[in-house]
Design a protein around this nucleic acid. Structure first.
Length: 558
DNA sequence: CATCTC
DNA sequence: GAGATG
């Protein structure tokens, strides 16, 4: 019972990586409405597109919007409120829905801000979203899943408007703020993306550290925040950036991911620590639980700079200069870190698991492996080289443009990199995995005695099943046995002894005997043993008996 | 941009 | 697939 090609080497496959008992917090997003909203007024500037309640404290007073109204009406602040109050009586136009399997937004409820479709551009976006199955809601009801905010609006304006004009006291439970790019990107990739990515954050959301000092937070919340933020590159923000430049210490004052909902909650005057903590964790739950504590936390401007953010007044540090290494705060887990072992990293010595592009590399690697399997040496090489430069890159590559600047990375792979960052996957790879030829190849490769070369040849010849092979192909003796015992070999043998490592595809015996200087007696013993086991019916197939009838190695199956 | 080498 | 080439 030997299956060389599938037998893992325990010494290399063993993972000493201790699973960090990081428990994923609940994903429930709660807004505590038990605390009355604070009466504190806003001092921020009022956007032209949103009504200022200080100027118009009474929405009801406003005239009904003219259905044919143009931009003037909108700018005069009748747009949102009136649409909300009038519940949009206009007839819904027939939407040409995309094929059902492409309706990625089905079940989702989009609330747009401003909440009308008078802006042609927004109307187009709304229409598109509806084509992909979204429901467009003009009231901030509980079904709303996404609040899609025009990029021209800033967070401050939105909050002010929601609170003072609409008297909103709590957001829909499931709702999350996204900017107008989010639905577009989702459609582009035909899948729901992570709405909490920074590039979809509503502009102007303030950072956590600016909201209130850590000392005012509940200890638990602060603790959790600190813990999580260690592996959470903070989003860049003008204020926090300025502080970053002068103040070296960043451990306690990490600018946090903007959390519109959180800010909303705060600005509404809710300060319940538990809800706060839950909400905060909610903003982080999309982050991988992979233990990356050895990762040198990139400086904010390093990794989180958003090129798409065309914010006018704030300028960003152009050069991602890494701060000189400083002492890192270690969690309660202590200083042990498996990444400190050189054996945990590849042989090139050029990279570590702390590489911010690790996930990207991982997927590109799969692509490379795929092309290697289908014997596309040039693409294989191209991916290898691209991975090579990516491994040398210390800052996280997020966009295609960014990636294509790098050597050995052209447009094609650059686009793939962006897709990986955005979707945490690659459609091309998924397709490749489903590719009939590849699936057949995978099947054939599991046959004992069949390697990549033969397997690919058969697959390309159009053979699909093992039956095809038995009927149409000249099989070696081993291959016949391999097919005959296909399921046996394919079934892994779980053994408690090795459970911690993996499962084993085979079991190896090393037979020896004290006081032997020659292999001769052992060989005869092995021969006898095999002969006996075979006659007993325990061993059913001999697969490799290299040297005559008495060999030091014997491969077979039981 | 098609083609070719790597 | 990247990169050079005409």
């Amino acid at each position: 019972m030997q299956r060389n090609h599938s037998a893992p080497q325990p010494s290399v496959s063993v993972s000493v990586k201790p699973n960090k008992p990081l428990t994923r917090k609940t994903s429930l997003l709660r807004y505590d409405t038990s605390t009355p909203p604070s009466e504190s007024s806003f001092t921020g500037k009022t956007p032209s597109v949103l009504p200022s309640s200080s100027q118009r404290p009474n929405p009801e007073r406003r005239v009904v919007s003219d259905p044919t109204g143009g931009s003037l009406v909108l700018k005069n602040s009748t747009g949102i409120a009136s649409m909300l109050q009038k519940n949009q009586k206009r007839k819904r136009e027939a939407i040409k829905l995309v094929p059902e399997d492409q309706q990625i937004f089905r079940g989702l409820d989009f609330f747009y801000l401003p909440a009308d479709d008078k802006n042609p551009k927004r109307k187009m976006r709304i229409t598109k979203a509806k084509e992909y199955g979204a429901k467009w809601t003009t009231e901030l009801e509980d079904d709303v899943t996404h609040i899609v905010v025009d990029n021209s609006l800033t967070y401050e304006h939105i909050m002010k408007y929601l609170k003072e004009t609409l008297k909103v006291q709590a957001l829909p439970k499931r709702a999350i703020f996204v900017n107008e790019d989010y639905p577009i990107d989702c459609i582009a990739f035909r899948r729901i993306l992570d709405a909490k990515q920074d590039k979809y954050a509503v502009k102007g959301a303030v950072t956590e550290s600016e909201e209130k000092p850590a000392s005012q937070r509940s200890p638990q919340a602060a603790q959790d925040e600190e813990d999580i933020s260690r592996r959470t590159p903070p989003r860049e923000d003008s204020a926090s950036q300025a502080r970053d430049v002068e103040g070296e210490e960043e451990t306690q004052e990490i600018s946090q991911n903007p959390s519109p909902a959180r800010n909303f909650q705060r600005e509404m005057g809710f300060n319940d620590p538990l809800a706060e903590m839950i909400e905060f964790v909610q903003t982080k739950k999309h982050l991988p639980l992979d233990d990356e504590e050895n990762e040198e936390r990139p400086s904010s401007r390093d990794s989180m700079q958003d090129p798409g953010d065309s914010d006018d007044s704030r300028e960003r540090s152009p050069s991602p200069v890494r701060k000189p290494s400083k002492k890192k705060h270690r969690g309660p887990k202590g200083s042990f870190n498996q990444n400190n072992f050189s054996c945990m990293t590849g042989g090139t010595g050029e990279t570590t698991s702390s590489n911010p592009n690790a996930r990207t590399i991982e997927i590109l690697q799969e692509m490379g492996d795929f092309y290697e399997q289908v014997k596309d040496q040039w693409r294989t090489r191209a991916y290898r080289m691209a991975i090579g430069t990516l491994k040398k890159t210390t800052n996280k590559i997020r966009t295609a443009e960014e990636a294509q600047e790098l050597p050995k990375i052209g447009k094609r792979i650059a686009d793939k990199i962006e897709e990986i960052v955005l979707t945490d996957g690659l459609r091309r790879l998924e397709f490749a995995k489903q590719d009939p030829t590849d699936r057949v190849l995978q099947k054939f490769l599991k046959i004992y005695g069949v390697g990549p070369s033969q397997g690919l040849r058969w697959a390309q010849q159009g053979h699909k099943t093992l039956e095809d092979l038995k009927a149409n192909v000249n099989l070696t003796a081993n291959q016949k046995i391999g097919i005959a015992h296909y399921d046996d070999f394919d079934t892994r043998i779980p053994r408690e002894e090795v459970t911690a490592l993996a499962s084993s595809g085979d079991i190896d015996f090393l037979i020896t005997k004290p006081s032997t200087t020659t292999t001769t007696p052992l060989l005869t013993f092995l021969d006898d043993l095999v002969r006996h086991l075979t006659s007993t019916g325990f061993l059913v197939a001999a697969l490799a008996v290299p040297r005559g009838d008495s060999s030091s190695k014997w491969h077979g199956a039981c």
